[in-house]
């Protein structure tokens, strides 16, 4: 609960500051979306990496408790990934005049990442519950994590930029001062939200599993 409260205060406060204090980022149409889109996207990456890390732990130790942890990380990560796509699409409409642009490599690689992890659930629920399902799901989750650096670096590898990166370019911060501070608060809030959603879902799923055993 303290984590959920921290998320509420940090994200609410951060976005409030972004709206009232900073307004729109210079040079961007609807640049205020930056303060929600980028923290949510980075949190999605963090959750998917966390899910993959737990999958690796499962394969390494054969301890099945990691299966539920990996699954929950990927589930919450996918919610954040969907929010990234939706907020990104709204930003694209404001910035480029279209909801989606297939030429933008970061958009497309992020969509591939989202679809890949969506298929994780199709795979998982097509298998009988047990150690085999846990191992196959873990291997799949580990394959998916390879897409994360590709997605993250896609915009930097692209020759022609559509998708601007107002965070770090050529090794130096592209935003500084107040904007960077407010972004930090929003990012901390998004991470706290991700962590609290993960913890609450995991507690519920563990209770559900224990109930099934008790029956």
């Amino acid at each position: 609960m303290p984590l959920a409260f921290a998320a509420l205060v940090l994200l609410g406060g951060g976005l409030g500051l972004a709206l009232l204090w900073i307004g729109e980022l210079e040079g961007f149409a609807a640049g205020g979306i930056f303060f929600v889109h980028v923290p949510v996207a980075l949190s999605a990456y963090a959750l998917l990496v966390w899910g993959a890390w737990k999958a690796l732990r499962l394969l390494w130790t054969r301890d099945e408790r990691y299966d539920l942890e990996s699954y929950t990380g990927i589930h919450v990560g996918l919610i954040f990934a969907l929010l990234t796509l939706v907020t990104g699409s709204i930003w694209a409409r404001a910035e480029w005049g279209v909801w989606w642009d297939w030429r933008d490599r970061q958009l497309v690689t992020f969509l591939i990442l989202f679809l890949f992890y969506s298929a994780y659930f199709m795979l998982r629920y097509s298998l009988e519950q047990g150690p085999a399902r846990a191992r196959i799901s873990a291997v799949y989750a580990l394959f998916g994590v390879v897409l994360i650096p590709v997605s993250f670096l896609a915009v930097r590898l692209a020759e022609q930029f559509l998708h601007r990166t107002p965070l770090i370019r050529a090794g130096r911060p592209d935003i500084e001062g107040t904007v960077l501070g407010v972004f930090g608060v929003c990012f901390a809030g998004a991470l706290a939200l991700a962590a609290s959603m993960y913890a609450i879902e995991l507690a519920g799923k563990r209770l559900d599993a224990r109930l099934q055993e008790a029956r």
Binding site: A30, G32, I33, I79, L83, I90, L193, G204, D208
Partner: peptide
């Protein structure tokens, strides 16, 4: 309504829907 507000609203609604689903599950 500005695009920025729309994006913030999307996140708020998503979190509220998630809270509702979790409350039902609990």
């Amino acid at each position: 309504m500005s695009y920025t507000w729309a994006a913030y609203l999307v996140v708020l609604v998503a979190v509220l829907v998630w809270v509702g689903i979790i409350a039902l599950k609990l």
